[in-house]
C-alpha cells in the first residue's frame, strides 16, 4: 500500500494544533489514523499535509465528577472500553470497534470527527445525549451529539475547529445503558447499531433514550421508542412492542449494500433496539 506524497506535521499541544491548522488550512487532522491512512493507501484520500494530534496530552484524559464524565478527544477506544466511569453502552461499543490494534490507536475524537455512518460511537453518543466540546481560533463551542452528526461523513465542525472533549451523564441510580449491533461480517462495522439508556423506578420506565445508526447516513435518535415505553412496566412484552416503534423514526434514507439490503436493515432496527433495551433494562436493575 503506497499513499501519495504528503507532508507530516506533529502538534505538541492543543494550541500548537490550532496554529498548525491555521497555517495549513487544507491539511487533514489525524489522531489514530485508522480511517485516514487506509483511505490514503487506497488513494481515495490525498490530503497533501497531515497534522498529527495523536500525541497531544491536552486531549488525553478521562475523568468523572459529580455524575458526569468527560473524555478527552485523544482517548483511545481501548481506554474507553476499559473504563468503568463511562456509561455501559459506551464502553461496550468501544470494545466492539475493530481489533485490539485498532482500539489501541484509534481515538474517540477521531472517530466522531470522521462521522462514518457505520461507526458505533455516534449512535451511542446520540442515545446518551452527549455534549461535544470543540476548540478553534475563535474559542470553544458545545454541540449536542444529535446536532454534531450532520450527514454521511459530515459533522457540525467548522474549518479550523477540533473536537476537544466528549462529555455525558454517567449511568446513575436505577439507570442502565447498552449497545447492540449487527456487524458487517467483513469489516465488523455496524450494519445496524442500537443504543439505549433507561431508568427504571418501581418496576416502571421513567426515562428512556434510544438511538440507531449504521443503517442511515447519520446516527439518529429514536424518540418514538422512548415515548412508547416511558410510564410502562419494565417487561419483555413492553420492550418488544416499544422497539417496533423505531420504524416510525426511520425515514426513507435507510441504506443497503451487498451484505444487507435496506429492507433487512430496517427490520433489524427493531430487533437490535429490542436487544439494547433488554440489556439496558437488566443493567438498570
Amino acid at each position: 500500500m503506497y499513499p501519495p506524497k504528503f507532508d507530516y506535521l506533529r502538534a505538541d499541544s492543543a494550541a500548537n494544533a490550532l496554529e498548525l491548522l491555521a497555517a495549513n488550512p487544507d491539511a487533514k487532522v489525524m489522531a489514530g489514523g485508522h480511517s485516514l491512512i487506509p483511505a490514503m493507501n487506497l488513494r481515495l484520500a490525498d490530503p497533501g499535509t497531515i497534522i498529527d494530534i495523536g500525541r497531544v496530552a491536552d486531549f488525553k484524559f478521562l475523568s468523572a465528577n459529580d455524575g458526569y464524565v468527560g473524555i478527552g478527544s485523544g482517548t483511545t477506544h481501548a481506554e474507553v472500553a476499559a473504563s468503568s466511569d463511562v456509561p455501559s453502552a459506551l464502553s461496550e461499543a468501544a470494545g466492539l470497534i475493530g481489533d485490539p490494534q485498532v482500539r489501541n490507536r484509534g481515538t474517540v475524537g477521531g472517530n466522531i470527527a470522521h462521522a462514518d455512518p457505520a461507526s458505533d460511537l455516534p449512535t451511542v453518543l446520540v442515545a446518551l445525549d452527549a455534549t461535544i466540546s470543540t476548540v478553534s481560533g475563535s474559542g470553544t463551542r458545545m454541540i449536542k451529539a444529535g446536532d454534531f452528526f450532520v450527514d454521511l461523513f459530515e459533522t457540525a465542525l467548522n474549518d479550523g475547529e477540533l473536537v476537544a472533549e466528549i462529555s455525558m451523564n454517567q449511568d446513575g441510580a436505577n439507570t442502565g445503558s447498552a449497545y447492540a449491533k449487527l456487524s458487517n461480517p467483513a469489516s465488523r462495522y455496524a450494519m445496524v447499531g442500537a443504543a439505549a439508556r433507561v431508568t427504571v423506578e418501581g418496576g416502571v420506565f421513567t426515562a428512556v433514550s434510544v438511538a440507531v445508526g449504521g443503517l442511515t447516513p447519520k446516527a439518529q435518535a429514536a424518540p418514538s421508542v422512548g415515548a412508547a415505553l416511558v410510564g410502562q412496566a419494565a417487561t419483555a412484552d413492553n420492550i418488544a412492542a416499544a422497539a417496533a416503534a423505531v420504524q416510525n423514526d426511520l425515514g426513507d434514507d435507510v441504506m443497503g449494500d451487498i451484505h444487507a439490503s435496506a429492507d433487512y436493515r430496517r427490520q433489524m432496527a427493531t430487533v437490535f433496539v429490542k436487544r439494547a433495551l433488554t440489556k439496558a433494562t437488566e443493567r438498570a436493575g
Binding site: L42, N184, P185, A186, S187, Y189, D257, I258, H259
Partner: peptide
C-alpha cells in the same frame, strides 16, 4: 459456508475488493 463471497455485480465490477467487503 457462512461468510466468504467473491462477489461481482452484473456488470463485472468486483464488489468484494478489500477486506472491508470480503468476509474472512
Amino acid at each position: 459456508a457462512l461468510w466468504e463471497h467473491g462477489a461481482y455485480d452484473a456488470e463485472g465490477q468486483l464488489l468484494s475488493g478489500t477486506f472491508m467487503d470480503y468476509a474472512m
